[in-house]
Design a protein around this nucleic acid. Sequence first.
DNA 1: TGAAACTATCTCGATTTCGAGATAATCCGC
DNA 2: GCGGATTATCTCGAAATCGAGATAGTTTCA
Lengths: 146, 146
Amino acid sequence: MKDIPLQLWVVLARAFNAVERHSRASIARFGVGTTEFGVLEVLHHKGELPVCEVQRRILVESSSTTYVVDKLCARRLVRRRRGETDRRVILLTLTSAGRRLIRRIFPPHARAMRYAVAALAPRDQARAVRLLRTLGLGAAARLESR
Amino acid sequence: MKDIPLQLWVVLARAFNAVERHSRASIARFGVGTTEFGVLEVLHHKGELPVCEVQRRILVESSSTTYVVDKLCARRLVRRRRGETDRRVILLTLTSAGRRLIRRIFPPHARAMRYAVAALAPRDQARAVRLLRTLGLGAAARLESR
DNA sequence: TGAAACTATCTCGATTTCGAGATAATCCGC
DNA sequence: GCGGATTATCTCGAAATCGAGATAGTTTCA
């Protein structure tokens, strides 16, 4: 096998899959799925955000975002609010229950991630971050121009 | 942001997502999804294989594997055959139509992957392969031991 | 040998995600 | 300030994936 791009795609998929399982396992016992966690996390770190902004960050389609936000609202973890300056947007915020939950989930999740990637020494983790950032941004840019 | 493991997880997910879109786009016009393509590809490269062996390589659960193989069999791209030495296993092979199809899909797919990862110079692609292989194997190993 | 543990595959129902398209609000160029 | 393009969100039905568990065959070893 000499085709590096194909090899890169394979190991990228495998690494993503394995690390994602660690992530899922660390949050599943709180009754929260990967995508729901993504919403809680971004709202926790950025504060109130429009749905579209959240969507961009959690890597699912808009219809799936609606679905996930519906569930979080039903569980009273997130609240919807109509935007005032731009009345197309719906702004999302954590409720206090949502804030409590994410604060409880986050520390073990960060530990799980540290453990998941510990096969790489810190220096190599930093290298991987740089390479993957370039790769991801480049691939994303090339998507649009096609 | 100083937490490298979390950063690594984010850029890994983003890179995977962006590259996967390239992959999907390159095979979707043949009416084949990512998982179906995985089955065709592995059978193309390895020849006849048991379902469980295919499953290990395409990163989905066994029930999903059954579902995907069902569809490929319905389209007469793959054939099931009962194993002889071990009668639990079902062996999968490409039909000649399946072989024809994968041979038609593969070259543009390889090109798409080359293009998708072209933001990294060949030398950095090779570095990324090494790092991701270590990361993936390490994370997978750490899954079991938990 | 025979029972218990393990492995391979499949079934079934539920969950998650997608894609196309509807609706409403905003932006832009003239 | 009008009309067409764009953007934000949501609805709906279909497709993909999962998880638990059923079934059948195999391995292990007391």
